[in-house]
Design a protein around this nucleic acid. Structure first.
Length: 423
RNA sequence: GUGGGCGUAGCUCAACUGGUUAGAGCUCUGGAUUGUGGUUCCAGAGGUUGGGGGUUCAAGUCCCCUCGCUCACCCCA
């Protein structure tokens, strides 16, 4: 009972699964690079103030979900709950706007929020995110959505639907907010407790309440798109035109209001039907004033993040090939094991994956282990072979085996794998 | 933070209304030619039934506490 366990909401990703994670990450990198994105590696630790100022002081994330602690010198530190704030901070801190006309950045890494775990939600979870700084045009919005669409298609992810909306800008949103307040003012007592609170704090959020009751009441509520100012409306219409040009299918969801304070205009989510309550695989939006709010020059920006675990659970892992071990060396006896040690050492230097069983054991058991590791070839070295100066090389797929002089074996394998690898 | 469901072997599960030494499949280890794998056959290992307390002649089964997992709410990826 003195067993030490992992922390609640924090998962180990075991090798079989990690291999699939790697595959997905590689695919993301590959596709993002074709769109001109560069990776940015941002810290897991940030000063907690960064998140207060970006995400918003009254959001749940900063109010009750952040992992906070005092550093030894008393500074307030947080484990990052999301990536955008860090990327913006880095963009501003290093004056990236001066070195490039615009920036396309992506990141991959763990985020931390102390919520109660449930399906698709963890306290340490991974996000693949991207941000673009410097473009105000809705074309970049569409390009970004098209990139996500391509990414999901390339992973053969099925059943995700793109929902888009516009929540306006600081010019037109106040009017919409007021319209909502007016609409709900005489229905307040019929709303759930949460929505009554939202009425004061952020009436937009009443729109995406999950209570069927509130949902029904909100049916006749003012629509965000009816309240957009001319510029925001034009932005949204052009976005749709571009999505059509790019062949990206989407639905408008006027109830899609994002929770983070910094969003403006375009918001979007890729939702999956097979994820349970936490159904957003990816989400994001435009945030045209955040860079300036964090001390940078006025810079339009847009970004998204993908919930890695949610993406993973929509992914068919069986399509990822298992990586084989090239060579397993089965050695019988001390002298043979010494030889085995030397051989795999030489193979490693040639880039050929090779392992041996340092515990020895019967040939049968070593063969079984070779099989467990999906080894392509097995080298067998015993007393007979040592006295003849040869090793047996066995092809595990077709069972063909032959004797090769021990001095030639590395060269021989090198030849085999060289021709293997070339197309 | 709130509420529901569930904890039996490494994994997936069984054990009628409480009733003897808690079972099975898969996995694992060994054997079936003294040095040849994945199939098959045989054998073996593996559990203080999450932990603690209580009721009872008797608890995996009932009650309480606790820990953990899980789903949902809040919120969000």
């Amino acid at each position: 009972m003195a067993q030490i366990q992992g922390i609640k909401g924090v998962k180990d990703v075991l090798p079989d699964e990690a291999r699939v994670w790697q595959h997905i990450r590689n695919k993301a990198r590959e596709i993002f690079h074709t769109f001109g994105y560069s990776e940015i590696i941002i810290p897991v630790l940030e000063s907690s103030e960064l998140f207060l100022r970006s995400i918003g002081e009254t959001t749940d994330i900063v109010e009750k979900e952040m992992y906070l602690f005092d550093d030894r010198d008393g500074k307030k530190i947080a484990l990052r709950p999301e990536g955008t704030a860090s990327v913006v901070r880095s963009f501003v801190e290093h004056n990236l706007s001066h070195s490039l006309p615009f920036s396309k950045l992506y990141y991959i890494g763990p985020m931390f929020r102390r919520e109660r775990p449930q399906a698709g939600r963890y306290r340490q979870f991974y996000q693949i995110g991207a941000e673009v700084f410097g473009f105000a045009s809705p074309q970049i919005d569409a390009e970004m959505l098209s990139m996500l669409d391509l990414f999901f298609n390339s992973l053969n992810i099925k059943g995700v639907e793109l929902q888009v909306n516009s929540i306006g800008c600081p010019i037109c949103r106040p009017a919409f907010r007021e319209a909502l307040r007016n609409f709900f003012s005489d229905k307040l007592s019929n709303l759930c407790d949460n929505c009554q609170r939202r009425y004061e704090l952020n009436p937009l959020r009443i729109l995406d309440c999950k209570s069927p009751h509130c949902h029904a009441i909100a049916e006749g509520a003012p629509k965000t798109l009816d309240y957009l100012c001319d510029d925001c409306l034009k932005h949204f219409n052009t976005l749709q035109d571009c999505l059509k040009l790019a062949g990206v299918s989407y639905n408008i969801n006027q109830r899609l209001v994002r929770g983070l304070d910094y969003y403006t205009r375009t918001t979007f989510e890729f939702v999956s039907g097979s994820l349970g309550a936490q159904n957003a695989v990816a989400a994001g939006g435009r945030y045209d004033s955040l860079v300036e709010e964090l001390g940078g020059p006025p810079t339009p920006a847009i970004g998204f993040s993908i919930g890695f675990e949610r993406l993973f659970s929509n992914f068919d892992s069986s399509s990822v090939a298992v990586k084989l071990i090239n060579v397993f060396v089965a050695a019988l006896g001390d002298k043979a094991q010494e030889k085995a040690f030397q051989i795999i050492n030489q193979l490693h230097k040639k880039g050929i994956s090779a392992i041996t069983d340092y515990d020895g054991g019967s040939l049968k058991s070593q063969m079984r282990k070779a099989d467990k590791f999906d080894s392509e070839f097995v080298l067998i070295i015993g007393d007979d072979e040592l006295s003849k100066g040869v090793v047996i090389i066995r092809n595990m797929k077709n069972k063909a085996q032959e004797e090769v002089p021990i001095t030639m074996i590395v060269e021989k394998l090198e030849g085999i794998f060289k021709t293997h690898d070339s197309p």
